[in-house]
Amino acid sequence: MIDHARDLDSVREATERLLSAAASLDNAAVAEASRLPGWTRGHVLAHIARNADALVNVLQGLPMYADAATREADIERDAPRPASEQLADVRETGERFQAVGAEPADWQRTVELRNGVTDQAARVPFRRWVEVALHHVDLGIGYELEDLPEEFVLREIDFLAERFAGHKDVPSTGLRSESGRMWTTGGGAEGGAVAVSGPAPELLGWLAGRRDGSALKVEGGTLPQLPPL
Rank of each mutant, 00 (worst) to 15 (best):
M1D: 07
L8A: 14
D9S: 15
D9V: 13
S10N: 13
V11A: 10
E13L: 13
E13V: 01
E13D: 15
R17I: 01
L19C: 12
S20M: 09
S20E: 15
A21T: 13
A21H: 13
A22D: 13
A23L: 10
S24A: 15
L25C: 14
L25Q: 07
D26A: 05
N27Q: 09
N27K: 05
A28N: 07
A29L: 08
V30H: 12
A31T: 09
A33L: 09
R35D: 12
L36D: 05
W39D: 12
T40Y: 14
G42F: 02
H43R: 11
L45G: 02
H47E: 07
R50L: 13
L55A: 05
L55H: 15
V56L: 09
Q60W: 02
Q60F: 02
L62Y: 04
M64F: 07
Y65K: 01
A68I: 00
A73H: 14
I75Q: 08
E76R: 15
E76A: 15
D78L: 09
D78N: 06
P82S: 05
P82K: 04
P82R: 02
Q86C: 05
R91T: 07
T93C: 07
E95H: 10
A102P: 13
A102E: 09
A102D: 11
W107D: 10
R109G: 00
R109D: 03
T110N: 02
T110Y: 10
V111E: 11
E112L: 01
N115Y: 10
V117H: 14
T118L: 02
Q120P: 01
R123G: 08
V124W: 11
F126V: 03
R128W: 13
V132Y: 09
H135Q: 07
D138T: 01
D138S: 07
D138L: 03
L139D: 10
I141E: 07
Y143N: 06
E144W: 12
D147T: 01
D147R: 00
E150H: 04
F152V: 05
V153K: 00
V153E: 07
R155Y: 01
E156D: 12
F159T: 07
L160M: 10
E162C: 05
F164S: 04
G166T: 03
V170E: 03
V170A: 06
V170C: 04
T173V: 04
G174F: 14
R176M: 08
S177G: 12
E178H: 11
R181E: 15
T184D: 14
G186C: 12
G187D: 12
G188M: 14
G191S: 14
G192E: 15
S197H: 06
G198K: 03
G198E: 14
G198Q: 10
P201A: 12
G205T: 01
G205W: 02
W206E: 00
W206I: 02
L207M: 11
G209S: 11
R210N: 06
A215L: 12
L216I: 05
K217R: 11
K217D: 15
V218E: 06
E219M: 05
G220D: 06
G220V: 02
T222G: 11
T222V: 12
L223T: 08
P228I: 00
